[in-house]
């Protein structure tokens, strides 16, 4: 395996990690405020569908982004009403929303486009274009040199290879996702709002006693989670893919939950965990079966590895991962 191959796998890992990162941060805000969010999967799916549908009808990926995020927020709102206002079981609500998303997207796609539950492939302005950073090798350099871009990068020095393949050439949402990591950290750990949000997930009664509304904080966390999850779906349909395909979220919401546990409910480790899971997926995509000196690791094992790792982490064998204390419990105000 040469150096460029490693860079290419890392590049693909970053792309695959992006939807996980958005969803993982969404789960982070929600669970830090004491609300379990199994519905990440469903929110990714509705948002991916709305983004692709609107982008394909209007030809504008930005309108698609807006509608995708809106769809995800409306699902978040239902989850909020069920688990905050009516004090329902948050896990059950999440499961219900996942089914609803999985069914509704196919129904709507079939009714709008009649293409067997998918949207027409997105082209041109319907997708986010890759951003070429300054000094990176890109299409224009390849045209100027008169050779294909692959050859040009192959001949470049290692630093240029890393810069052009791994760092440059992603769509804007990848950079937004990376930016969200320090931003989430800042909001959660350096602002008053963040302190209160975390407190609501640990001891809502204390927050209430201090005269701060538990309900408002929890709804705010739902709105943030909805927005971030929406971006995850938008990226899936308009950045990573080109259009909506039925069940295209493919368990990413659950992997994001797994990453959240892996990251012990912290933003910076969330980046590491989602990148690791993205890397596993990238390797599984590139090599069907990995031969480790006689022992062949089947591709199914690579696919199952994120889940196996999560169970191992949950079992507490690799450092304990403790969830916010008030997670999953509806808050009942004392009278």
């Amino acid at each position: 395996m040469d150096f460029l191959t490693i860079v290419q796998i890392a590049d693909s890992a970053l792309r695959l990690a992006t939807p996980l990162l958005f969803a993982c941060l969404a789960g982070l805000f929600s669970e830090r405020a004491g609300i379990f969010d199994i519905g990440l999967e469903g929110k990714i799916l509705v948002s991916a569908f709305m983004a692709a549908a609107i982008a394909s009808v209007t030809g504008s990926v930005w309108l698609g982004l807006l509608c995708g995020v809106f769809a995800s927020i409306s699902f978040s709102a239902v989850h909020g009403v069920a688990s905050i206002t009516f004090r329902g079981n948050q896990l059950i609500s999440g499961v219900a929303l996942n089914f609803l998303a999985s069914g509704l997207t196919v129904l709507a796609a079939q009714a709008w486009f009649s293409q067997g539950g998918r949207t027409p492939p997105l082209m041109g302005k319907g997708r986010f274009p890759p951003i070429e950073l300054p000094f990176a090798l890109g299409k224009s350099d390849a045209e100027a040199a008169g050779v294909p871009l692959r050859v040009l990068i192959d001949q470049a020095n290692p630093i240029q290879q890393v810069y052009s393949e791994f760092i440059s050439g992603h769509t804007i949402l990848v950079y937004v996702a990376l930016l969200m990591v320090p931003l989430s950290w800042f909001v959660l750990f350096r602002t008053r709002f963040g302190l209160r949000l975390r407190a609501v997930g640990e001891n809502p009664a204390a927050v209430d006693t201090a005269g701060v509304s538990v309900i408002k904080l929890r709804y705010a966390s739902m709105a943030i989670a909805g927005t971030l999850c929406g971006l995850s779906g938008v990226y899936l349909a308009t950045g990573l893919g080109a259009g909506f395909i039925k069940e295209m979220s493919a368990g990413r919401g659950y992997i994001a939950l797994a990453a959240l546990i892996f990251a012990k409910w912290k933003p910076v480790p969330a980046l590491g965990a989602t990148f690791l899971f993205g890397l596993l997926e990238a390797i599984a995509n590139r090599y069907q079966n990995i031969d480790l000196g006689g022992i062949v690791i089947p591709v199914q094992f690579m696919q199952a590895l994120p889940y196996i790792l999560t169970v191992v982490i949950l079992a507490g064998f690799v450092g304990k991962s403790v969830a916010p204390k008030a997670g999953g419990q509806p808050y009942v105000k004392e009278r």
Binding site: G88, V95, A96, L97, F99, L100, A101, L104, V106
Partner: peptide
């Protein structure tokens, strides 16, 4: 022209209203 996935929608709605939003009717 209604796809099979209609069942998944109904399933989701049943879980939502009998499970998570039970209090909406009960209260």
């Amino acid at each position: 022209k209604i796809p099979r996935e209609l069942i998944v929608v109904i399933q989701g709605l049943v879980i939502l209203f009998t499970g998570a939003l039970d209090n909406m009717v009960r209260m």
